[in-house]
Write a protein that binds this DNA or RNA. Structure first.
Length: 488
RNA sequence: CGGGGCGUAGCGCAGUCCGGUUAGCGCACCUGUUUUGGGAACAGGGGGUCGCAGGUUCGAAUCCUGCCGCCCCGACCA
């Protein structure tokens, strides 16, 4: 077949790239490390964006937009932050081109050198906190609950479509609060929003937890993360929410007067999810036949395929079904292409992950029925034409639930426990997945384990029970188990 | 940035070792005919600075040098 996908069992990375390309989600671009997000891929991101945007607004946040460029000096104001990002920044040094004196195209005009270089934002804490300095004077100005949808650039060594690209799309929330408690609650609230989005919309179960000091965001006092498990047994950090303490307030001198007329530094959070979620979505559900999308994030939820080809009878029925479904908020595509045969279309829509396919042929119509096929299970059945729209609505819900359930079962089956280092290493290397083990809490041990097994601490789960134990490597006392895994 | 592999049509590849007419094949694309309930068949057709730049040669996809890009594995990272 023309569009054969490399099976997961043969080469997982190649499988992933095949899905991205053959489902028409993204292409490589002329720019190293940057992808072109194609309409189908972008539509998925739009669905995610719209839903998240609604959730942010429902929790009191508003959108704003800050510049793409950050003066170089801003980056150096928060020590940990610059340490974390400096190595991977794109830098603008000039503002003009000129014709090459030798006549071959254009060159940078050396006389157009910027007095201060501009950094293409890798994240916007610094430019935003520099702005908040002017916006916050009084406790009455707080909290500031602002989000921006933007692109950022991180000059990564190795890139993969959606999972890691030099430029990516994301949202970044940056909030300012009067108290430490309020800021921590904000970071936790968003942490919950992310987890709810992952599970309810992406049908992707996640572990909620806190990052170890070593894995924390550069400049944060606490990083809350949602961690998902991909089908190859590697973990993927899907969304982080940071409690930044007063680090940025102090670096950018953002103070407010409290009700007692005392000057205080404000407390901060920042949080983000990116187009990486599209990659997570692919790797959570898809199979060797192509993309599988959860109905709630499928730009097209139902495709109707006339069999063997469109006729006026069939199209009349298809149009009716479409309009019934549209009224119920379901998006529907009727494939009216007369040239391609049904078998081709079936394979094509399976590749593209459309959750439900309705086949309508003369034989079906004679029996007053249609053929309904599920993408996730690849099962199909004949259904009476009466009340078909109601049935599809239920079916889509069922598919959404079943995808989550399947992913959860996989995650649970690939979450194990280790109490000695030999077992730990075997689990990490042979089985993969999350391994729950005791950790003595030191970065030194964390790094040693990573060096020996390539597994990192994905998170200290929120629901980790206090349990006396000893570190899986060093044997030092430990209070609770943490989750280890190899990660993307 | 280190190790490995690879750059020939939109995609996948052969040809490169051993230089020699007009650079091939499959898929995709266009036209037509016959087809059409799980990726149709036939016929005709379009599409290439052989990654880029130098060099060797009567002659370079093929040999030499340099560069660039992509993929995989590491280190770094959302």
């Amino acid at each position: 077949m023309a569009k054969e996908i490399t099976p997961r069992s043969e080469d997982y990375s190649k499988w992933y790239l095949d899905i991205v390309r053959k489902a028409g989600l993204a292409d490589n671009s002329a720019v190293r490390g940057c992808m072109v997000i194609k309409p189908t891929g972008y539509a998925i991101w739009e669905m995610m964006r719209d839903q998240l945007d609604k959730m942010f607004k429902d929790t009191g946040h508003v959108n704003a937009y800050f510049p793409l460029f950050i003066p170089k000096s801003f980056l150096s104001k928060e020590a940990d932050h610059v340490e974390g990002f400096a190595k991977e920044c794109a830098v603008v040094t000039h503002h003009r081109l000129m014709s090459n004196p030798d006549g071959s195209g254009v060159v940078v005009d050396p006389s157009a050198k910027l007095a201060e270089e501009l950094i293409v934002r890798p994240t916007s804490e610094t430019i935003i906190w520099n702005t908040y300095k002017d916006w916050v004077k009084s406790y009455r100005d707080l909290p500031l609950l602002i989000n921006q949808w933007a692109n950022v650039v991180r000059w990564e060594m190795r890139t993969r479509p959606f999972l890691r690209t030099s430029e990516f799309l994301w949202q970044e929330g940056h909030t300012a609060h009067a108290t430490r408690t309020e800021a921590i609650e904000e970071a936790q609230l968003i942490h919950e929003v992310y987890a709810r989005f992952a599970e309810d919309y992406m049908a992707m179960p996640v572990i909620k937890g806190a990052k170890s000091a070593h894995e924390r965001f550069a400049g944060a006092e606490e990083t809350y993360t949602i961690e998902a498990l991909m089908q190859d047994g590697k973990a993927l950090q899907a969304g982080t929410s940071h409690f930044l303490g007063q680090n940025f307030a102090k670096a950018f001198d953002v103070k407010y007067l409290n009700s007692d007329n005392q000057e205080e530094y404000v407390w901060a959070t920042s949080w983000g999810v990116s187009t990486r979620l599209v990659g997570a979505l692919i790797m959570t559900h898809s199979d060797d036949e192509g993309l599988i999308l959860p109905p709630k994030l499928a730009p097209i939820q139902v495709v109707i395929v006339p069999i063997p080809r469109p006729s006026s009878d069939i199209l009349a029925v298809a149009d009716k079904i479409k309009s019934d479904l549209n009224q119920k908020g379901i998006s529907v595509l009727i494939d009216k292409d007369e040239k391609k045969r049904p078998g081709f279309k079936f394979a094509e829509y399976e590749m593209k992950g459309i959750p439900v396919r309705i086949g309508i042929g003369e034989r079906d119509l004679a029996k007053n029925q249609v053929e309904v096929a599920r993408r996730d299970t690849r099962s199909k059945e004949s259904r009476p034409l009466d009340n078909i729209a109601e049935h599809i609505v239920l079916l889509l819900d069922q598919i959404q639930d079943s995808l989550l359930e399947k992913a959860r079962t996989f995650r649970d089956e690939n979450t194990t426990t280790a109490d000695d280092f030999k077992t730990f290493k075997e689990l990490i290397n042979d089985k993969g997945g999350f391994v729950s083990a005791h950790w003595d809490g030191t970065t030194e041990t964390e790094l040693k384990i990573k060096e020996l097994t390539k597994a990192s601490i994905r998170c200290i789960p929120n629901d980790a029970e206090l349990e006396k134990g000893s570190d899986v490597l060093t044997g030092s006392p430990s209070q609770r188990r943490v989750l280890f895994a190899k990660a993307y």
